[in-house]
Design a protein around this nucleic acid. Structure first.
Length: 484
RNA sequence: GGCCCCAUCGUCUAGUGGUUAGGACAUAGCCCUUUCACGGCUGUAACAGGGGUUCAAAUCCCCUUGGGGUCACCA
């Protein structure tokens, strides 16, 4: 047995941001580990020096932290099997590459990139899969030593034995088979001495005692290479689970060109981490019942690899929006207050001061009407500034030649009350309507236009009460001036 | 193109041989509400096609079609 307790890992390469597909992979690993009291490891696969991005690792970690996916071992945290940055492990990989050469499971290759390109082009012309032709496998020991001692640039390649059937079991897809004839003699160690993904991944998964390799389906076709490596090194093969891909609306692999893919983008737009996690968890997994709303601990307790789907899932923003509303509604006023205050900083009202009581009043009446907390500043702008224009269609429909006079009367009534309650506003309104022998609507709608400029929103008496007597009176004066 | 994976409403999915094929999002309508929402109710909407196996197939097998992934000294 590799390890008594299940150990899984999320092994992203630091490209600058965390992809939502990556988030889902990380989440499934995390949920799986937490569900069976295993360990979740974060390992950074930074073996491509050409693609090194400054600050990418920190960014990755902080995004993971934001999402609430915390790891047991990894960079910044350490652990028994570190270091967890592959760039700090290159000696380890070269040691195993040497071992593979000794076992004749790998060999030096001195081919120039020109030769390789030419070879590939010819193969493509014939509509064949491009594969290395094992040219350097025929080199004698003498030739190899000579090349090595003259410092000729070289790589180390996996020696794939043709004519074999590579079988492995995938937890999600069950038995998968490849012919070794279609497995390329993959480069294991590059000219710059850094390992490729395939070597580093297998070595680390073994050394870090990973029991379950849970990763995206894009890795399925390179899994035979990994199986060959495990066998060559005489190591126990972990359980593979290849997750279905996240897709664009046109069913291609989720990509930047067709929308936001970075977790940060969703964070910026105001999505709750709870909603994103909930949504992404349901993209490819279901507990089998009709439950759609999940808190993180519910996901942990019901998650199982057995119920992960096989087919790709389109990232449907509509459902995410709905889940965001659902999670928003579960938040307490205090939590929303905290969020609203932070959004206030980024809003155009950032210079203004509001006390908690005021903001909580606004939250209470607005919370059911918004999908995002920042929408309170958009839909409920009139709690933060005077309306300067009045919705045209609303004016046309609700404002008539009596409206100014009716509002004047209403204003007079309010002026007489010292500090009006919601009921005072309501009673004054009913009285005004009665006096004019008209329906409440002929007061309500012009009044709503006066204080908010729009025709929709929370109950009118709530609005009046929250903005208060003075603003109510001023806004009534303003609309009469402007519309008459 | 080779290889591999996949296939139920527009979308996410339930379904493991016998169901009026269920739910959710979206969408349409109605109700609630003198506003907008929320909420409630109702509706439209799916087993890719063709062969088998079976008394019986969305479910098992095969083929076709379609979609996707992958074929780097990137991960």
């Amino acid at each position: 047995m590799i390890s008594d307790i299940p150990r899984v890992r999320f092994a992203p390469s630091p490209t600058g941001y965390l992809h939502v597909g990556g988030l889902r992979t990380a989440l499934y690993n995390y949920l799986f580990a937490k569900n069976i009291k295993g360990k979740f490891i974060l390992r950074i696969e930074d073996t491509d020096r050409n693609r090194y991005v400054q600050g990418a690792v920190e960014n990755l970690i902080s995004t993971l932290n934001w999402a609430g996916i915390d790891y047991d071992e990894g960079p910044e945290k350490g652990g028994e099997y570190g270091p967890y940055l592959q760039s700090e492990r290159i000696d380890i990989y070269s040691q195993y590459a040497d071992l593979l050469i000794k076992k004749k499971k790998a060999y030096y290759c001195f081919c120039s990139s020109e030769r390789l390109t030419k070879l590939r082009e010819e193969q493509q012309k014939q509509n064949k899969q491009s594969m290395y032709d094992k040219h350097c496998l025929g080199l004698t020991g003498e030739e190899i030593n000579r090349n090595l001692s003259t410092g000729l640039p070289h790589v180390i390649r996996l020696n794939v034995e043709p004519g074999k059937v590579i079988k492995f079991n995938d937890h999600i897809r069950e038995d998968v088979e490849f012919s070794s004839n279609v497995v390329d003699d993959q480069v294991l160690i590059k000219t710059d001495k850094y390992p490729t993904y395939h070597l580093a991944n297998v070595v680390d998964d073994h050394l870090m005692k990973i029991t379950h390799v849970i990763r995206g389906e894009e890795w399925l076709s390179s899994t035979p290479k990994h199986v060959i490596l495990y066998e060559a090194l005489e190591w126990e093969i972990p359980i593979f689970a290849h997750l279905p891909l996240l897709l664009n609306a046109d069913r291609s692999k989720l990509s930047k060109r067709q929308g936001d893919v970075a977790v940060e983008d969703y964070k910026k737009k105001g999505y709750l981490k709870e909603a994103l996690i909930n949504f992404v968890a349901l993209l490819g997994w279901t507990a089998g019942d009709d439950k759609e709303y999940y808190e993180i601990d519910e996901l942990i307790s019901s998650f199982s690899l057995d119920r992960v789907n096989k087919s790709g899932a389109i990232f449907d923003i509509e459902k995410l929006n709905w889940l965001n509303e659902e999670h928003l509604r579960k938040k307490s006023d205090i939590e929303l207050l905290k969020m609203l205050r932070s959004e206030l900083q980024d809003s155009k009202f950032s210079g203004q001061e509001y006390n908690d009581e005021y903001l909580i009043n606004v939250i209470e009446v607005m919370r059911e009407t918004v999908s995002f907390i920042k929408e309170i500043f958009e839909k409920g702008f009139y709690f933060f500034e005077e309306p300067t224009t009045y919705e045209e269609a609303g004016v046309k429909k609700r404002w008539n030649n009596q409206s100014a006079e009716i509002l004047k009367q209403y204003k007079t009534k309010i002026e007489l009350i010292t500090s009006p309650t919601r009921e005072d506003y309501e009673n004054a309104l009913k009285d005004t309507a009665l006096q004019n022998n008209t329906g409440n609507g002929n007061v309500i709608h012009p009044l709503r236009l006066a204080v908010s400029g729009v025709t929709g929103g929370p109950g009118i008496f709530d609005i009046l009460y929250i903005i208060g007597k003075e603003k109510t009176i001023n806004r009534i004066k303003a609309i009469i001036e402007k519309l008459n």
